[in-house]
Simulated scan of single mutants.
Amino acid sequence: MTTVAVFVRPPEPGTVLESCVDTGAVTAAEAADLYAAMVRDVCAAVEASGGELLVNYRPVNADDPTGPVEDDESLAAVRDVVDEALSDPGSARYEVQVGTSFSARAGNTVTHLLEREEVKSAAVVRPTAALLERRHVDSAAMKLRQSEVVLAPATDGGVAYAGFTDPIDFEDAFAPPEVETVTDRACDGGLDVDFIEMVPVAESPSGFATLLSHIRARQRAGLRIPPRTSAVLDDLGLRAEAVDDSLAVGRD
Rank of each mutant, 00 (worst) to 15 (best):
S101A: 12
A77Y: 01
A242I: 15
E30W: 02
F7S: 14
S139P: 04
V42E: 10
R185Y: 03
P127N: 10
G107M: 05
D172L: 12
A85Q: 07
V159K: 05
Y94L: 03
V96Q: 10
R218I: 00
H136R: 01
P13A: 02
D41Y: 05
S87G: 15
G67N: 01
A92L: 09
A5D: 09
T165E: 06
E117I: 02
G237W: 09
S19C: 00
A129P: 11
D41Q: 06
S246A: 12
V149P: 08
I168P: 03
P68R: 00
G190V: 06
R9M: 12
E73F: 09
T109Y: 04
R93I: 00
A130K: 03
D244M: 07
E117C: 07
G207N: 08
R134Y: 00
S147L: 01
A45L: 04
P177H: 02
V6W: 06
A106T: 05
K143M: 13
G237R: 05
G189H: 04
T128P: 07
G250N: 10
G107D: 07
A248D: 14
A5R: 04
Q219N: 10
V243E: 14
A129V: 00
A31P: 01
S103A: 04
F170E: 14
D83G: 07
D88L: 04
S19L: 08
R251A: 13
L54F: 03
S139N: 12
S213A: 15
R9S: 13
S213P: 10
A25L: 06
Y94H: 03
A28H: 01
T183P: 08
V16Y: 02
L212Q: 05
V96A: 13
G50L: 05
R93P: 08
A37Q: 03
K120T: 12
L233R: 05
T100C: 09
E241F: 08
S121V: 00
T27I: 01
D72M: 11
R105S: 15
T15D: 10
H112D: 15
G67K: 01
L212S: 07
A37G: 11
K143H: 12
D138F: 06
V179F: 04
S147C: 13
P227C: 09
R251T: 13
F102P: 00
A140M: 12
H214I: 00
V150C: 11
L191T: 01
P227K: 03
L113F: 06
R93G: 15
P13N: 02
D88G: 03
G222I: 04
A242M: 15
A175S: 13
R134I: 00
A140S: 11
A154D: 14
R9D: 06
G24P: 07
V21W: 06
L247N: 12
V124W: 07
V98A: 11
E70C: 02
L212E: 09
S204Q: 11
A240P: 14
D245N: 14
L212H: 03
P68I: 00
T210A: 15
N108Q: 10
D192A: 14
E30L: 05
R79I: 03
